[in-house]
Amino acid sequence: MRTLRMYPSSINERYLDEVADCLRAGGIIIYPTDTLYAVGCDALNNGAIERLCRIKGVNPQKQTLSVVCDGISMASEYARIDNEAFRILRRNLPGAFTFILPAATSLPKVFKGRKEVGIRVPDNQIAMAIAARLGHPILSSSLKVDDEVPEFDAQELALAFEGQAELLIDDGGDGESLSGGMPLPSTVVDLTDSRSPEIIREGKGELQ
């Protein structure tokens, strides 16, 4: 696995191109977010999605899949966002949230027949820059390995996922996940009925 050192305050454009090219080719990446490190692939590449789900040991037909976008505008192409949902997203994003929204028909066939999609716009310049350079969302899942492999330690993650992912983006400790204390996952909010949002997992984000 190739490791790229990239800093949120000074993103390497050449590395960013390499990451986007890897994703377009069906590759798997490990990258920092505003919570835990995440494993991701091109959200429009069915083969890559199936591969990522095998790595995570999840059934894509039974589990809500989440995508990382560079902003609400990109998210609106892949989820149905009504006026009230838009107001909630605008107040809270970018931020440490996964919002469950009605899925749009523009998602690939692995999403067909699914009514929901998780939307993430993390408050992390690297994650948003990757999605922007790719031009569409990253299918993403937080990394929870085991008690022996901290999900905020890039070197340990590189060893744990050797042979499974092509690239690891190491933020050099500048990421939010290394800011002290045990890292928290995103707060998950069900917005399928935007008039009565429901927090279904408490995490780092505090809903406004």
Rank of each mutant, 00 (worst) to 15 (best):
L4G: 03
M6A: 00
R14I: 12
R14D: 14
D17Q: 13
C22A: 11
L23F: 02
A25P: 02
Y31K: 02
L36M: 10
A38I: 01
A38W: 00
V39L: 05
G40L: 00
A43H: 04
L44H: 08
N46E: 09
N46V: 10
E50H: 13
L52R: 09
R54F: 02
I55E: 04
V58W: 05
Q63L: 12
T64I: 13
S66Q: 10
V67N: 05
V68H: 03
M74Q: 08
M74H: 01
R80L: 13
A85S: 10
F86S: 13
F86A: 14
R87S: 14
L93M: 01
A96N: 05
T98L: 08
F99P: 04
I100W: 06
L101M: 11
A104M: 05
T105S: 15
F111N: 04
G113A: 05
K115R: 15
V117W: 06
V117F: 07
V121K: 12
D123H: 06
D123Q: 07
P137S: 12
S141L: 03
Q155M: 08
Q155Y: 09
E156H: 15
L157I: 01
A158Q: 04
E162N: 14
I169N: 00
D174W: 14
L178Y: 07
T187H: 06
L191C: 12
D193E: 15
I199E: 02
R201E: 04
E202R: 15
G203M: 07
K204Q: 09
G205Y: 01
E206I: 14
Q208M: 12
Q208A: 14
